[in-house]
Amino acid sequence: MSVNHCGDFKQTYKDDMRVLQTRFIRFWVYGFVAFLYVFPLIASTYVVSLTNMIGIAVIGALGINIVTGFTGQISLGQGAFLGVGAFSCAFFMNEWGIPFWLAMPMAGLVTAAVGMIFGIPSLRLKGLYLAIATLAAQFILEYLFLHLEGITGGSNGVMFPSPQVGDFAFDTDQSIYYVIITVAVLTTIYTTNLFRSKDGRAFVAVRDHYLSAEIMGIHLFKYRLLSFAISSFIVGIAGSLWGAYTQYITPEHFTIAESINYLAMIIIGGMGSVLGSIYGAIFMTLVPNLLSYGTSVLANVWAGAGDLIMSLKEGIFGLIVVLFLIFEPDGLAHRWKLIKAYWKLYPFSY
């Protein structure tokens, strides 16, 4: 199966509208998803744990990409929205005894509502002004996390109970992995489909040319808010999974730094791209971890310099991000497209 089509020979519109166009691609994608489900059986706990972080990051990155990459509304409130999801999920489980499987979507709805409230300025504000409004959301919510002690436990944080099915608790890296990866796969499918149907296309239209979008019958404010809502719902789910993964949540994790981390993810991976969200999540999770690993090895070899190297780590990470922005401004997803296009036509370059 090494023959690639180099033209368009679709018989029906249905075929033409498939996401995974060739049998070759379908084989690899389905194969990869199947592989994900046997992965914990062969990987070390550390690698599984890392993959859990990537899985959660994929969900969160898809969430922020919907509002920022696809709809063009920069959100600096991602960190806080993750927190809203995590704390409300914990609250529903701890205080109301609701099982995780119901508490998680409920937390998503709460986050969607909060996201919509902070999206209201999009009625009047665009671009950087709207970004500042979402920054305000971040700080207001951070303040609430610290002071609504009855819900969040204040600076002490709260326990996050593990999801359960009957007597089985998803309380290890290996078991929670299956929950995370399943939600990540579903979110990826959902987002892909969203952007080949009515509302997703409307988001992109609003981003690309809002005056034209309006003339096409797209109600701007409705779609700007809806984008915040869907995005925040998914981010709330990611926050809930983060809680289930760490089993203990404190406000410290849900700061502006996390917001920026996620923004970097979608910028590096690709704004307005589902695949880009995935690449960005992998990149931004793996690189700091690899750097930690590398510096700890180095610190062992070069005794005494541990502190120096540890502090360099942050700088090196920053440098890598900046170099990416300079040399790959369109993101990893775009680079991948170029590489694919190259191989599709290889060895004929026209």
Binding site: Y190, N193, L194, S197, K198, D199, G200, R201, I218, I230
Partner: peptide, 14 residues
């Protein structure tokens, strides 16, 4: 757009 009926719930399921 104005003639399509499938919103973000069914649209996401496709």
């Amino acid at each position: 757009h104005i003639h399509l009926k499938t919103g973000f719930l069914k649209g996401g399921i496709y």
